[in-house]
Design a protein around this nucleic acid. Structure first.
Lengths: 112, 112
DNA sequence: ATGGAATATTCTTGTAAAGGAATATTTAGG
DNA sequence: CCTAAATATTCCTTTACAAGAATATTCCAT
């Protein structure tokens, strides 16, 4: 679900992790060091991002290499694109809406 | 900040409000009714969305008409677009990364 | 001015989420 | 086997957040 992804990215450290991973895959330790947070917190944040479908892991010996998955970002982008088309059409129809309210009010007055 | 917007949209009701407002401006009461939540909760969620810069209000007599603002969505879209270019380049360079790790390991062995 | 409708705010309470410290797990190397 | 490194997990405490109920505010019509 989109709101799961949003929620995951709503935490500043996690958004920073995503920014970091834009430059390529990284290990937990590298991420923790970059963000200046402790390793367990890094692991926890990575877990949440992973469970939200934003990341994927590859185990290499001792290490875990995390990288971004493309799909969720693609999906989000599609969603936003679907906004663009509507933008001019419906969004700024405040005038129309006000008139609508106005006519409802008149109806109501006619009844009384 | 982007994470503020994400955080705001990370709450399911609030994301639904945004979906609703895609069809045009609405009053608090209409939103509450649509989402089947109580008016005070609707007001609270709208407040958070508003403070995140996602909405704007127009007072008309008794009512408050909320509508989407374009800018934050545009900004988010730009961010996502900036992902696309990086996508093929750096993201899937796991091979390269592994080799890098490998060479570091060799360095280390040379020292001992 | 009074009452009612629409909305916002406050207060409280339950629950989730984040950080810290400690501990468990896995893996490679000796 | 034993140790050290990298990572994950658990437990605890504190903070943040959402829903509910009640109340305040604003505005219009009478």
């Amino acid at each position: 679900m989109k709101s799961t992804m949003m929620k995951a990215l709503g935490e500043p450290n996690r958004l920073q992790i995503v920014e970091l991973l834009r430059s390529g895959p990284l290990t937990v330790g590298e991420i923790a060091e970059s963000l200046e947070i402790r390793q367990p917190q890094a692991s926890k944040h990575l877990r949440i991002l992973n469970e939200a479908g934003i990341l994927e892991v590859q185990a290499v010996a001792n290490r875990r290499i995390y990288k971004l998955r493309q799909e969720p970002f693609q999906e989000l982008d599609d969603w936003l694109t679907s906004f663009q088309s509507i933008w001019e059409e419906k969004l700024d129809r405040l005038d129309a809406y006000l008139e609508e309210l106005q006519s409802k009010k008149i109806d109501q007055e006619e009844k009384s």
